[in-house]
Design a protein around this nucleic acid. Structure first.
Length: 396
RNA sequence: GCGGCAAUAGUAUAGCGGUAGUAUGGGGGACUGUGGAUCCCCAGGUCUGGGUUCAACUCCCAGUUGCCGCC
């Protein structure tokens, strides 16, 4: 078993705080993991992440096995040394890439369509799938050089052991909401089979997380929650097609909740945005990972707290030069991050408009601070039994 | 100074005697286990002045500006 101990702390309803002990340190939950796909949170150095008070980050097996290669990282001494990051790390298994590079390309769906296909139309042009899945594993081509690769559950574990993160994930199949129940059910059996294979292959003191799938069918989700919870995983992740509406995502969390062990952290994969974080914490989730802060930064949005931020604007504002060129205020007057302390909207909008690297940096820094700070507030609120009040104050 | 060529959206370029396209830039929107990507929507233009014609961005004349060549 992995080197992980989870102790729950305060709770308010199903919302709870916890202490998660990993090889590189102990963290407090609920927490948001910035996504460091290629061993970096885009635009931010490990020093920045430390300064921001990030407790852990999640890297990606698919990308790192291709570039620079697992061996490079292994011989460097593992991800922590490679990245000069002293606190805990997680790695994703590469299972999601089988989706995003397979179904996602073929059916022209972005991630949003995966989660909320009823609310959004596919926004990409259909492309030829570069991944194929069978009972043994995932066949795929590298997005970097088109070379052929085959990833098995055992292979994914082995690579994640070479990468050496504190917490690793089993290889799973992330099904599409457009898949029918028959396929989703078959796929679920395969994901469960792989979960057992991963457990057998696992041979280090890294914490290993199992993944619950099952699409938007109650019986499949319950079956999966029951099965994954029955295995000796250190942590439980919830993945896949989380319903066709926000309500359905809430339903899924409520369906599986009774089956989840109290003493294991629960990680909602790939989520989320502000509203989803509140709703998921309320339903007992401890860990999140999402690209939102840095992706939004790169497409020119900055996050804002209430009163500027609200449910309608999704707590973000578009960085537009024409709108801000004479604006000497910080991005968010309510924010206490370094960027808001030192720079004006006028300056940052100019940098963004000119596509200057530091423009991306400043927005990424601020947005990452926004999410980490939100999680800090949520933890404090749960400790003080004020979570529902905080949620209401954010208008959610 | 003379000759040739050109002048169309912020920029770069098509086109036609009868509703002026495209790209890029601009504005708005989308983005949830990464995508500096992509997708959707909007705004924006025929150098100036004459002439021919039912009708001129298109043809003609002059002017202006630019580029090239010559003296």
């Amino acid at each position: 078993m992995g080197y992980l101990r989870f102790k729950t702390g305060s709770s308010e309803g199903e919302a709870r705080t916890g202490t998660l002990k990993l090889r590189h340190g102990t963290i407090r939950t609920p927490e948001f993991m910035p996504v460091a796909t290629r061993a970096i949170v885009k635009a931010l150095s490990s020093d920045d992440m430390a300064e921001l008070g990030a407790q852990l980050m999640i890297c990606n097996t698919y990308h790192l096995m291709l570039k620079p290669g697992a061996e490079v990282i292994e011989r460097a001494g593992g991800l922590n040394i490679f990245m000069n990051w002293k606190k805990p790390l997680a790695t994703d298994s590469g299972g999601f890439q089988a989706f995003s590079l397979g179904f996602g390309l073929e059916h022209a769906t972005g991630k949003i369509s995966l989660y909320f296909p009823g609310e959004h139309k596919g926004s990409r042009k259909p492309q030829k799938s570069i991944a194929k899945i069978d009972n043994n594993g995932v066949h795929f081509r590298s997005v970097y050089d088109n070379s052929k690769h085959f990833l098995t559950p055992e292979g994914s574990i082995k690579i994640q052991e070479q990468l050496g993160a504190d917490m690793i994930l089993v290889l799973d199949e992330c099904t599409s909401p457009l898949s029918d129940k028959e396929y989703t059910s078959k796929s679920l059996d395969r994901t469960h089979l792989w979960a057992e294979k991963c457990l057998r292959a696992h041979d280090t003191d890294q914490a290993l997380a199992g993944i619950i799938q099952g699409g938007h069918w109650q019986d499949l989700r319950e079956k999966s929650a029951q099965f994954i919870s029955s295995l000796p995983f250190d942590s439980i992740a919830i993945g896949g097609s989380l319903g066709r509406s926000k309500k359905e995502m809430h339903d899924i969390l409520e369906w599986i909740h009774p089956y989840l062990p109290e003493d294991k952290p629960r990680h909602l994969l790939g989520i989320g945005v502000v509203e989803d974080i509140f709703e998921a914490v309320e339903r007992g989730i401890d860990l999140f990972d999402c690209v939102t802060p840095t992706r939004m930064a790169r497409t020119g949005y900055f996050y804002v707290r209430p009163p500027l931020g609200n449910k309608a604007n999704k707590f973000k504002i578009k960085m537009v030069f024409e709108r801000f060129k004479f604006d000497s205020k910080p991005l968010d007057p309510e924010c206490n991050c370094k960027v808001c302390g030192n720079y004006s909207r006028a300056y940052i909008s100019h940098l963004y408009n000119m596509n200057e690297i530091v423009g991306h940096y400043l927005l990424s820094y601020h947005n990452t601070h926004f999410f980490l700070n939100l999680m800090r507030e949520i933890r404090e609120a749960i400790d003080d039994s004020k979570f529902s009040r905080l949620k209401k104050r954010w208008g959610i």
